[in-house]
Amino acid sequence: MHSFGYRANALFTFAVTILAFMCAIASFSDTLNSPTPTAHVQVLSINRFQKRPDGDDEVSMTFNISANLRSLFTWNTKQVFVFLAAEYETSKNSLNQVSLWDYIILEKEDAYFRIRSTNKYRFIDQGSNLRGKDFNLTLHWHVMPKTGKMFADKIVMTGYRLPEVYR
């Protein structure tokens, strides 16, 4: 009844239960945080706009991103993955989402930033539909906790219209 094995087992079970409970509490505490992030994106220039040999349109552009995502951070936040996506509709696809740029924020201090960048991933359409096309720029973020549930949200920003001719 009171052997070493039983005591070790009871202690282990108790420790694991407490740990699981604390993880659940930590994850729940995230839901009490109501973040108020702000972001602004401005397309500065279209560097290249061409039809590739396989017939798909490709765009290269430069943009400014300024964002304040500090309020996303809680004590249970390991990192915030933030990315900029272009979203548009074509005759072939009801939704196209193309990730253009992303960034991993590890510290709360780094969550207030202003960056000028060209698109990190290639902006290629499925087909040749990009001339004169309107698209939305959306800043998404994905919060990874130290433990528990992950969160994601986005800010849809003003759109941009691509030029009518290749350049």
């Binding site: 993955f81 990315f83 696809n93 009801s94 989402q97 193309v98 991933y121 499925q126 994905h142």
Partner: peptide, 15 residues
Amino acid sequence: RVIKVHERPDTGEVD
């Protein structure tokens, strides 16, 4: 992580 999505209108098929 998913970085690109292309979704067809009717069938909902997705790349």
